[in-house]
Simulated assay, not measured.
Amino acid sequence: MRQLGSDDDFREVLALIRSAFAYMQGRIDPPSSMKRLTVADLARAAAMGEVWVAGDPILGCVVLTPAADALHLGKLAVADAARGTGLGRALVARAEASARARGLPAVQLQCRVELTALHGFYRALGYVEVGRSAHPGFDRPTSVTFRKQV
């Protein structure tokens, strides 16, 4: 596993995220923010936090952003060919190690309400639901917030 370094890496990661999140099209409302994600966004995320990748070619990634009370885990993506290999769990473990190294007490993430299989994935790793929130313009929860003390 390594942190991102070059624009070529960012382009490869963006392609992975778009491919891995494609199944959400038509399943979540509002649509995923990955449609607006750019190479520049990933470069800014790396400058503000950490973007970790695994594999060559890249088969998995995770974007980590520090906050006052937790490390935010976002854009966890695993290529279809690598699903079921433990790569997603390894990337989450990387996030937890980064939180500890930064002296942060927890890792926190948001997952769309509709993606119940992912809820089970995070719960199996010890994450607990701590809240629900709605995207602007929605009168119902659209995201579930999960958190794990590290």
Rank of each mutant, 00 (worst) to 15 (best):
R2C: 03
Q3C: 03
L4N: 05
G5V: 12
S6Q: 04
S6A: 07
D8N: 14
D8S: 14
D8T: 10
F10Y: 15
R11F: 08
E12P: 09
V13N: 01
L16Q: 03
F21S: 05
A22T: 13
G26E: 03
G26F: 07
I28P: 00
S32N: 08
S33R: 11
M34G: 01
K35I: 14
R36A: 15
R36T: 01
T38S: 15
V39Y: 01
V39E: 06
R44F: 00
A45M: 14
M48K: 13
M48I: 01
G49V: 03
V53E: 03
A54W: 01
A54C: 03
D56H: 08
P57L: 00
P57S: 02
I58C: 10
V63S: 10
T65A: 08
P66W: 04
A67T: 07
A68M: 11
L71N: 02
L71D: 01
H72F: 13
A77E: 03
A79R: 12
A82G: 10
R83I: 10
G84N: 13
G84W: 05
R89T: 14
L91P: 09
L91N: 04
E96V: 11
A97H: 04
S98K: 05
S98E: 12
A101Q: 10
R102N: 07
L104H: 09
P105H: 12
P105C: 13
P105Y: 11
A106Y: 00
Q110N: 15
E114V: 04
A117H: 15
A117R: 15
H119C: 09
F121N: 02
Y122N: 03
R123M: 04
E129D: 11
G131F: 13
G131C: 13
G131T: 06
R132L: 08
A134T: 09
A134Y: 08
H135W: 12
P136D: 15
F138M: 13
P141K: 06
T142L: 12
T142K: 11
S143G: 05
V144R: 06
T145R: 06
R147H: 04
V150Y: 11
V150C: 11
V150H: 09
